[in-house]
Each structure stands twice: as structure tokens, then as C-alpha cells.
Write a protein that binds this DNA or RNA. Structure first.
Lengths: 146, 146
DNA sequence: CTGTATCCCATACGATACTG
DNA sequence: CAGTATCGTATGGGATACAG
């Protein structure tokens, strides 16, 4: 018999992996920014200063209420967004970028600049790559976070 | 009966969503960089110029052969990495950053700088947030992409 | 050496319905 | 208005085994 069950080995390997990943701030930050709505939400908040839940929902088409809340909670937990509750008749909840969150915006801007300049190249590369296997057209480019 | 089945509505909604997301290069770029191994692989290639599959596997602890290939394929499809096959006895496959891939590295560097400076703050915020619900210690910080 | 096939799990995301 | 609960799906990632 082996010294570990498959499950034990899995757990050990995962722990080892996590330990390594723990050592990489960049990967961890990318995991945050890589969430579908993160850059969009941060950008909207940076533009408007303070926004309520409903306004954010309107400002970000396609997001569901659940995921909006979930995303904002994650950003709050990360210290990027501050949540302020006003106990009025229907409660009012305001979201604002923290100082930490604001400090991240130049990074997002840098990412956006590259994206606006070069994502068409990426799309073209994808089109070319896929064309070498089937026949699929490529959609038109557009501005970021419009 | 309704004009659409639930599945049709789902498909339509997804199409609408995709159409919107299609318009956001930043989100699309973040989706690429947000993949677990993307920044790590790009960084290793930027450091070493050209690397073989096995060397990359050694340079990136924790990644499985399957996911390494999968990740490299995605980067190749995106035009960020070039794959060159040398038909020797055991085939030799080399991976290199393309010009497009190299142009992305300053962006990654910007992200890394912020991460090295501020991820400890994020970790601290997480610790504080979680401490308000249970009792969980926070691990120590470390340098990026070491 | 490089890559594929298979199976499995965790999680992000989304639809819907419901509460204070 | 803001948020939660529940359910379902899609996908990324990983283990293992195998092939060119």
C-alpha cells in the first residue's frame, strides 16, 4: 500500500501549490482583476466617486444582482471598495473606492491602454489561429469600459 | 405559451451579454491575464528568451503537463507566444515571446510593482474582514514571480 | 520529450424567487 | 432598495494514464 491515499496526496499537493502561489503577489492580484466584473466596477466607481447598488447595476449591463453584490463584497474584503450603509426608510448603501482602490486605478489605466492598442492584434491572432482549423469570422473592435 | 423557452431566453441573454463584453478590450485582456499561469509563464519567457516545454515545467512549480500545454496553446492562439517545432529524434519544441507578447511585459511589470507594494495591504484587509466573522491568521508576504 | 485522452472537482457566473 | 437562497451551467484546473 502507498504511504498516502490519493486524497491525501491531492491535499498535500494542493497545500504545496497554495504555499507557492501564496508567494506570488502578482498572481494573486491578477486573480482579483481577472474576475469578470472587477475592472468594470472599479472603473465605474472611479468615474463617479460614489454609487449606490442600483446605480451600479444600471451602469454595468448584464450583471445580475447576486453577482454584483458578490463582486462588491469581494472588493470590500480586499480593501479596494468601502461600503457605507445609511439607515433610511429603504436602506441606502453607497460604494466608494478606498485610497487603496484609487491607487490601483493607474494600473488599470495602463492595462486599458495596452488593451485598446493591442487587443485587435490579439483578436486577429485568434482569428488566424482558428482559421487554421475551421472557418470563423472575427468581430469588430471597440473602446474599453465604455 | 411564451414567445421564447427558458433556454432560448438564456441563449439570447448570453448573446446580448457577449456582445457587450465583446466591446470591452480591457475585460478581455484581464480574462487572459487572469488565467492562473499566464503572468508566470510570460515572465519566465521574458526572462529566458526561449524555453522548451520541459524547462518551463521545471520553472513553474505546481503546473501539470496538461495545463502547461493548454496555457501555452492559449497564449499561442492569442499571438503572445510563438511555438517552434524542431523535428529531431525526440521532438524539440521551443516557446518564445512574440513582439506582441514582449509589448505586454511593461504592463505586467506595472501590475507586479503595484502587487509588490500593495498586496500586503490587501491581505491585511482580508484578514481584518475575515476576523470580523471568525478567527483566521494571515500568512506572510513575499516577492512576485520568484 | 511533448502532447493527448479521460475523469473529476472547485468555482465563477447566471436565473429565479424571495426577505427586511 | 439591497440582499439572500437555491439551483443550474460552464469552465479552469488537476491526476492519471497513455501515445507519437
Amino acid at each position: 500500500m502507498p504511504t498516502m491515499t490519493a486524497e491525501q496526496r491531492r491535499a498535500w499537493a494542493k497545500a504545496e501549490f497554495d504555499a507557492y502561489m501564496e508567494t506570488c503577489p502578482t498572481s494573486r492580484l491578477m486573480a482579483v482583476l481577472g474576475n469578470k466584473w472587477t475592472t468594470m466596477l472599479l472603473t465605474r466607481l472611479a468615474e463617479n466617486g460614489t454609487m449606490r447598488h442600483a446605480r451600479l447595476a444600471r451602469a454595468v449591463p448584464g450583471i445580475s444582482a447576486k453577482v454584483l453584490t458578490q463582486s462588491l463584497r469581494a472588493l470590500e474584503r480586499d480593501g479596494l471598495v468601502a461600503r457605507h450603509v445609511t439607515a433610511s426608510v429603504p436602506v441606502q448603501v453607497d460604494y466608494t473606492l478606498t485610497v487603496l482602490g484609487e491607487s490601483l486605478m493607474p494600473v488599470v489605466a495602463t492595462v486599458r491602454q495596452w488593451a485598446d492598442r493591442h487587443m485587435p492584434d490579439v483578436e486577429a491572432a485568434r482569428g488566424a489561429y482558428d482559421a487554421a482549423r475551421a472557418g470563423d469570422p472575427v468581430p469588430a473592435p471597440a473602446r474599453s469600459l465604455g
